[in-house]
Design a binder for these strands. Structure first.
Lengths: 219, 219
DNA sequence: GCATACATTAACGCATACGTTATTAAGGGG
DNA sequence: CCCCTTAATAACGTATGCGTTAATGTATGC
């Protein structure tokens, strides 16, 4: 990817959205963002339009760029999508007769999650979890599925980060991952699909529950 | 949606992509497109960037805007996605206890397909089929699912149109639709899901088969 | 004859400028 | 005191221009 101003703006703005530096439901004028990023309005505007197509922001005349918040309902919608497509990917991966070596990256991610878990390092766990899901979807071999999963993972990234400290230590999660990978290794597509589906439904229930329980309004 | 130049460009360019006026795998300079559309490069460029995020074109420096072609493999990928998400929508719709009146639009679409079929009017059939799938997904109640389905339907729209005359009359298809709608009406989520899944797999096999059989390279 | 270096060209990236238009606030009428 | 009209403001939409840069063709040397 070219290091153009537009791409710089994209990278930086995404970062600002994910970290909450631009808070959910806040509005920002193109000119202000341009000043902050040290460039003119044009590349900022182009980046904003791209991010709008990705569902991260909304561009409205005279109201600037609005950072889209995530509600519990949004979360439920997105996890429904992730649930279907990731479990499809798991099934497809199981059909591909991968060798243990093909699955090494996924294995490493799981190991990293275990390590993070025993260190009670939630950030490291979340990072490894993210990589595991990305790798799983890559193993599924459908680039569109991978793209959609990446996009919607982006949409919930901030909300996940903000609720991370509220979650119980994800012990069950790691066992789920192992089971899914085991099914893929054993070429059991049915199990891989249903195990992963259950895993994601679990996560969905947990997260939407947390948001509702804590009355989190602007994620 | 504002009737801005950018939106005009979006509408017109999408049209040109769908009809094949801009042929698959062809490149077009921003300045040329701007001339054709009677506007400056700026709105054309913005529209092109949005369409790039939607997976319709690719914008590359000094190569202009490239209309992305659809291969049999792309088709298979996209139908895998549509298959999962539409059948999810069908299941969700079945869980919603819709009344016959709620399902009237879908019913009308099916009737229109029947009429078109008996008139051997493939275009009318395709149009009603499109509306049926859109309505089904709307009934599912998940806006993200609806958005993804719309986007990927766009990606295969041109290829579907071009292969339409090659297809046998879709008699089976209409029966499938009735069965899915029947299951939704009867609140049988399992059946709705599996029936629709089978329906889409059928379509996928048919279309990818056609593309391969006729050696269609640039769709 | 082929490869490499260089010059030429033009498409793009981005800054800038300006007219348009929605918003907001102020003022006047009810 | 509230509502409506109107004027001021400023953010945006889009045209334009220019420096940058990649692609292409040419010339030169091996």
């Amino acid at each position: 990817m070219a290091a153009s101003q537009t791409n710089q703006a994209l990278i930086r703005l995404r970062e600002m959205v994910f970290t909450g530096e631009l808070s959910p439901d806040s509005n920002h004028y193109e000119a202000d963002l341009a000043d902050q990023l040290g460039m003119s309005r044009t590349p900022v505007r182009e980046a904003a339009l791209t991010m709008q197509a990705q569902g991260l922001v909304e561009v409205q005349p005279r109201r600037g760029v609005r950072i889209l918040p995530i509600s519990a309902e949004d979360m439920a919608e997105i996890y429904d999508v992730l649930c279907e497509l990731e479990s499809l990917a798991a099934a497809r991966a199981a059909e591909k007769s991968y060798t243990a070596d093909d699955l090494r990256i996924a294995q490493v991610c799981i190991d990293n999650m275990d390590t993070a878990l025993s260190n009670q390092d939630r950030d490291a766990w979340a990072s490894a979890d993210d990589r595991f899901h990305t790798e799983l979807v890559r193993l599924g071999g459908n680039a569109r599925v991978a793209e959609i999963v990446a996009r919607y993972t982006d949409q919930v990234r901030r909300a996940r980060m903000m609720t991370l400290p509220l979650r119980p230590l994800p012990v069950q999660s790691n066992e789920d991952h192992r089971a899914v990978l085991f099914a893929i290794e054993n070429r059991d597509a049915q199990s891989a699909r249903s195990l992963h589906r259950a895993h994601r439904q679990q996560a969905s229930t947990l997260l939407t529950g947390l948001i509702r329980e804590f009355g989190l309004r602007r994620l």
